[in-house]
Structure formats: structure tokens, C-alpha cells
Design a protein around this nucleic acid. Structure first.
Length: 685
DNA sequence: AGCACGCCGACT
DNA sequence: GTCGGCGTGCTC
């Protein structure tokens, strides 16, 4: 199946093989046979022979060149799977650079960008796209089009007007959108009512207005949000300023055909607002004018699939490559964004007029009221809730869902654990049988593994138990529980106690008349490098749901954290948090690479990078799943060199690895895994 | 992943 | 002198 050398007939296609194997992560050259020359353009899906003529691999043409640098004999392209250029050149460039930065494989990122092919969806799209009026007379595909189909683009797209961005200096925003600047935007901590009667966070209207600016200027906008709750608000806000056919969804909740259809829609000529979760950053949006990310500190923006590229980083690189405007909106920025602000890479945009929420921190103190004490509410918070309930809904934020987060043996006080898997037991409601929070097994015949006890004591209070206690404390008031199991997006303006776990707070019409943030002690007790910034984010996002003038009581929290919220100077807190990380050489002051594998392979990888300037290594130490783990710390400037040499080690191991595991060896253990910028590297457990 | 290639021990 | 074991390395 080998072609002839130097035959100029159809040119040479440079192909990215769709494979996660690190040793295949480069371009392969193939001769384009004359029959395929018409369709073999950059971006199309192809099938190519690999190694032996019988074996075919999938891939994408990323370049059609006169001649590559490969001097051997070229094979022929086997087939062009579809003529649609689904891998846009700028998306390929982005994937390549992100993979290099993360010591990963470009096709792993391309898989996030390009959904699996759907033939039906593709046919429909082709039929609508290649319209007779637009195609040149005699065009091959024009004849195949059913005449009755109304193509999207024959209908002249309605012009879109730039919506003023409420709450911000108009001239400043205009010039920012024009010159493609990068900004950290402090969102207005309010809820607003849309023309349809829908209440959303003010941030959603800011983001929607920014998108309308981009589209009015003829560019597309990519809008990324952490989850569907935020997406719901953003889409409502977009509908208020854009016609429906300018809004495209591209998110994880969609089925594959829906995602494929949405991706194809991006390839059209009309500028669109593309809304979705983290992977929407890779949408092939035409003439990209804006990328905006809401709440980049939310862990849902961290991609769980290899090579684990955070949407914040993907957006930063894409902005640099394409020069669009870039906005990070939030009520509480992460230390990563703070760092970029401090080095001058990001500008800051604050609301025109400072909206200062009323926040009162209280130390945990015993309330005189018995019922209130049971619900762990100090008397000041109790009073706020009581007056708030006269006018409308009151929000109570708790750390955990369910009834009790932990059970302990009545006799010895040891945490009650599952007799099957050692997982901690949990109680979902007052009358339920306790069950294991890891494996779900019901603990029917439980006995303590430490002593002879057979009865539990409840430790900690989940949302359900808090709801029961508060229901007793405020007789006659409606109690609404919102958590992961009971998702509620919005509540009305009527008086009600809304008990929600952090991150699951519904939007209240008109805003909450009072907010109680309970469980502060428990939230701050988490053993994570990011507790501080996480707490600021959870609480700020809840505070932003308050009605104008309403009071938020932050229970059981003091010190810098409490004053950051009380003064609403959250950036000051994050700034000092980042300063601490600098002193300790912790991320994001430096970058980190986590290297896991056999003692030998980890040592070799560590040796390979330890010669680079300003690189230091923690470990190796024994890793939980067997093998060892080392953490490599390095400055941003050395990122390229560190990633490249770690990548080289991965490839070396992958190509020289042979079935070596001895008799009864636990085979499936990869011998070397490299992960860059893992935020949980420094967490305990 | 697969599959060809090559270097070394045992064979007609 | 040649067959075939499996360890090694490559894939346009």
C-alpha cells in the first residue's frame, strides 16, 4: 500500500492519529490519492493505515502540505470519513499547545473538542448548510439537497444590538471588548429580575451583555459556567438580549447527537453565543470575540480527564492565540487569578458603584433559646432569621446534606464504620437505617469494631436534620430543603426557610431577606491547601443571593476570613493567601507536577528534570495504590522544559515497557504517570 | 496496541 | 546450516 515518493499529484496530508498512546502523539504524513484530493482538507476526519497495511487508525488532517519533513516512503490516505472540517485549525493549535503544557496527548484534548461523529446529524447539517442559493452552480452537493429544507443562512440573521453592561463603566467595557483585553471582573452581588419574571444572579446579565457586545461586533462568544444551575441563569439572561437562534448549548448533560449538532452549528458563519460547562472552551466558534468564564474557582472547571487541563488555563492559552477578549467573572477570585492580576497579565474591573453586602460574623455562642441552640443558631442570627421571615425567604447554608454526617459508637465514641468496606456510616433521615457512605450497604446488625457497643450516637448535622430542628424552632413556617438529592433552582418571594448545602442554594425572587451561614467551623476545618479561598467563594456566592439591605450572619468564623467577608474586601484576603503560598513555594506561586509510578521510573523522571533551574522535588514517598509518588515544583518560566522532559520519560517508558510483572504480579499498574497542576497534590488524604 | 525484526539456543 | 523462541522497537 506504499505510495510513490515525491509524487506531487494530491499533495501530502499531515495527520493527527486519534490515539491516547503518547508515542503516537505527533503528525504522520500520508500521500493524498487523487480520488480523495477534493475532500482531503485540514480538519476532516480520515482513516489511515498504520504500521501494517491491514490496520487502520482514525485521525484528523491538520495540514495539507507540499512536502513534510518525513523522507521515507508515504502510505496513502485510506479514506476521508466525512468532508466536514470538524477540527478547526485554531482548535488544533490550542490542543497541541495545551497538551505540551500539560505533558499530555493532543488527541486527548481533541476528544473533548470534537464529539463522536453522528452520521444522521451530519447529513442534516450538510443539507441545511450547502444551500443551492449559496453554492456555486453545478456544485456537486447542491444537487443532493432536498429542495424544501430551509437553510439557516438563507434567512438573513437578525442584527444584534450591544446590550449596555449594567453596573459597570460603559466606556471602559467598550474599549475592553474592542482591544481584546483580559480582565478579572468583580461581579455585582445582587439578584435581578429579567423581563420574563425570571430571577438570576446579576453576573449572568453581565456575561450576557458582554456576549451581545461580541456578537454585535460580528464575533462569537464562548461562555463557560461550572454547572447546569449557573447555565440555567445564564441562558435566561442571554434570551433577554439575543434571539434564540444565536444561543447554542454545548454541555455535559447533552446526548452525543445533541453535542455533535451544537458543534456543527458553531462551524456556520453566524456569530453565536456558545454556552456550556468546562469543555465549551474548545468550541470551534467562528471569529471568536469573547471568552467569559463564571466562577473559575469552582472545582467543576477542573477537567477530570487526562491531561486534566483546567478551563481557566485553556481559556488563557486560547485568548493568547486568538486575541479575543477574556473575562473571568466571580464574587471571589481564585489565587490563580490573583497571581495573574499581580503580575499584570490580567486587568481588574470592579462595579461602578460598590455594592457592600451587610455581613456580620459571630463567634459560636450558645443561644438562650433552647430550640435555637439545638439548631446551633446563635441569638443574633436567630433574630435576623425571625425578622427576615416577616418579609420573605431566609436562606440557611449548611455544610452537609442528609441527616447526620457521622455516627459514633455510644459506648466508646469511635466513628461507626461499615463492616464490609470500612466506610463511615451516614444517616439520610431520622427514621432511615444507617448506611455506608462509600458502598451504600445498610448497617442492620451493626456492632462496634472497637468495643462491644451496638448503638449509635449522631455527630454533626446535615441539611435534613437542620431542617427538622428549624421547623420546630419556627412553627408554621414553610421549610424547603435544597441539596444534591433535592435540587431546587428557584424559590418565590413568600416567607420560607430554605436549608441548602453550599453550592446548592436556590435563587430567591427579590433575594433572601436574611442569610445564615452555619457550619463555618466545619468548612474551615477541611485539610486542603485551598480551604481559605473555597470558603470565601462559598460564602460570597451565598451572600450575593441576599436582597438589598438584608443581613448575612456568618456563624462560628473569626479572623481574616471573617473580616474579608464583613468588609467585602475578598481580594485582600486572597492576596495574603497567595503571599503565604509564595513563602512556602506552594501552587499557584509555583507550578507542580505529580509523578507516580514504580520507584525506578519515578526516580528516572525526577533525575531528568532536576537539572533544570529552580526545580525542586518533594519525595518520592510511598503512594496509596502501591508504587511511589514525587512532587516536582518549578517556576512558570521553566514549564516548557519540565513538561517536555517529563513527557519524554513517559514516552520512553511506554515504548520500552514489556510484560515484566513477575508471577501473580498486579499487572495493570502503569509504570509512570505524570500530572501537572493537580490542585489536590498538597491535600491530606 | 499489534506486529515485524533480530539475536541466540537446539534441532534435522 | 536453519528453525523458531521471545525480547525490542516502531508505527508516515
Amino acid at each position: 500500500m506504499a505510495g510513490t515518493v515525491g509524487e506531487p499529484t494530491g499533495g501530502v496530508a499531515r495527520v493527527l492519529i486519534d490515539s491516547p498512546l503518547p508515542q503516537l502523539d505527533r503528525l504522520f504524513d500520508y500521500r493524498i490519492p487523487p480520488l480523495l484530493a477534493a475532500d482531503a482538507r485540514p480538519g476532516v476526519r480520515v482513516r489511515v493505515p498504520l504500521r501494517s497495511a491491514g490496520r487502520l487508525a482514525d485521525g484528523f488532517i491538520v495540514e495539507v502540505a507540499g512536502g513534510g519533513d518525513y523522507s521515507g516512503v508515504l502510505s496513502d490516505l485510506e479514506a476521508v470519513v466525512s468532508p466536514i472540517p470538524v477540527l478547526a485549525p485554531e482548535v488544533w493549535a490550542l490542543a497541541r499547545r495545551l497538551a505540551d503544557r500539560a505533558a499530555g496527548t493532543a488527541s486527548d484534548i481533541v476528544r473533548l473538542a470534537v464529539p463522536k461523529r453522528q452520521v444522521r446529524v451530519e447529513k442534516n447539517w450538510l443539507a441545511a448548510e450547502e444551500v443551492p442559493v449559496r453554492a456555486e452552480p453545478g456544485s456537486v452537493r447542491a444537487e443532493a439537497v432536498p429542495a424544501k429544507r430551509v437553510p439557516a443562512e438563507t434567512v438573513l440573521a437578525e442584527p444584534v444590538l450591544a446590550e449596555p453592561i449594567a453596573g459597570f463603566d460603559q466606556a471602559l467595557v467598550d474599549s475592553a471588548m474592542e482591544s481584546g483585553t483580559r480582565l478579572a471582573v468583580d461581579a455585582v452581588p445582587r439578584v435581578v429580575e429579567l423581563p420574563g419574571g425570571h430571577w438570576v444572579g446579576h453576573w449572568a446579565t453581565t456575561m450576557a451583555a458582554a456576549a451581545s457586545h461580541a456578537i454585535a461586533r460580528g464575533g462569537s462568544a464562548i461562555l463557560a459556567v461550572p454547572d447546569y444551575r449557573d447555565q440555567d441563569q445564564l441562558v435566561a439572561a442571554l434570551r433577554a438580549v439575543l434571539p434564540d437562534d444565536r444561543i447554542v448549548h454545548l454541555d455535559a448533560k447533552q446526548s452525543n447527537p445533541e453535542r455533535y449538532r451544537a458543534m456543527l452549528a458553531c462551524l456556520g458563519d453566524i456569530p453565536l453565543a456558545v454556552v456550556g460547562n468546562r469543555s465549551v472552551i474548545y468550541a470551534p466558534a467562528k471569529r471568536l470575540g469573547l471568552i467569559a468564564i463564571w466562577d473559575e474557582g469552582d472545582p467543576l472547571h477542573a477537567e477530570p480527564l487526562s491531561p486534566y487541563v483546567h478551563s481557566r488555563d485553556a481559556a488563557l492559552v486560547r485568548q493568547e492565540q486568538q486575541g479575543c477578549a477574556l473575562l473571568f467573572l466571580s464574587h471571589a477570585r481564585s489565587t490563580e487569578i490573583e497571581r495573574l492580576v499581580e503580575v499584570g497579565y490580567l486587568g481588574e474591573l470592579a462595579p461602578l458603584r460598590l455594592v457592600q453586602p451587610r455581613v456580620i460574623p459571630t463567634a459560636q455562642q450558645q443561644s438562650e433559646d433552647r430550640l435555637a441552640a439545638q439548631a446551633r443558631i446563635p441569638s443574633s442570627a436567630w433574630r435576623q432569621a425571625r425578622t427576615g421571615l416577616d418579609n420573605g425567604p431566609v436562606l440557611v447554608q449548611v455544610a452537609r446534606p442528609g441527616y447526620a454526617s457521622r455516627l459514633a459508637c455510644t459506648e466508646c465514641g469511635q466513628t461507626a464504620r461499615c463492616d464490609l468496606c470500612e466506610g463511615p456510616l451516614r444517616l439520610k433521615s431520622a427514621r432511615a437505617t444507617p448506611s455506608c457512605s462509600w458502598c451504600g450497604k445498610l448497617a442492620t446488625d451493626w456492632s462496634c469494631s472497637n468495643c462491644t457497643g451496638t448503638t449509635f450516637r449522631l455527630i454533626g448535622q446535615g441539611s435534613v436534620r437542620t431542617a427538622e430542628d428549624l421547623g420546630r424552632a419556627f412553627p408554621g413556617v414553610r421549610v424547603i430543603v435544597a441539596d444534591g438529592d433535592r435540587p431546587i433552582l428557584a424559590v418565590g418571594p413568600e416567607p420560607a426557610l430554605v436549608i441548602a448545602t453550599r453550592g446548592a442554594e436556590p435563587i430567591a425572587a427579590g433575594g433572601y431577606r436574611a442569610i445564615l451561614l452555619l457550619d463555618g467551623e466545619r468548612m474551615t476545618a477541611r485539610e486542603s491547601l485551598r480551604v481559605g479561598e473555597d470558603c470565601v467563594r462559598w460564602w460570597s456566592n451565598a451572600i450575593a443571593l441576599a436582597a438589598p439591605g438584608a443581613t448575612t450572619v456568618l456563624v462560628g468564623v473569626g479572623g481574616a476570613l471573617a473580616s474579608a467577608l464583613a468588609t467585602w474586601r475578598r481580594a485582600d484576603y486572597i492576596r495574603s493567601e497567595l503571599a503565604d503560598r509564595r513563602a512556602l513555594r506552594f501552587p499557584p506561586a509555583v507550578r507542580v507536577a505529580t509523578v507516580t509510578g514504580t520507584a525506578e521510573s519515578v526516580q528516572r523522571a525526577v533525575d531528568a528534570v532536576s537539572g533544570i533551574e529552580r526545580v525542586d522535588v518533594l519525595g518520592p514517598v510511598d503512594a496509596p495504590g502501591g508504587g511511589v509518588r514525587a512532587i516536582v515544583r518549578f517556576d512558570y518560566g521553566e514549564g516548557k522544559a519540565v513538561a517536555a522532559s517529563l513527557r519524554a520519560e513517559v514516552i520512553r517508558i511506554a515504548t520500552s515497557r514489556r510484560k515484566r510483572p513477575g508471577p501473580a504480579g498486579p499487572a495493570a499498574l502503569p509504570t509512570l504517570r505524570v500530572r501537572l497542576d493537580d490542585v489536590s497534590s498538597f491535600d491530606t488524604t
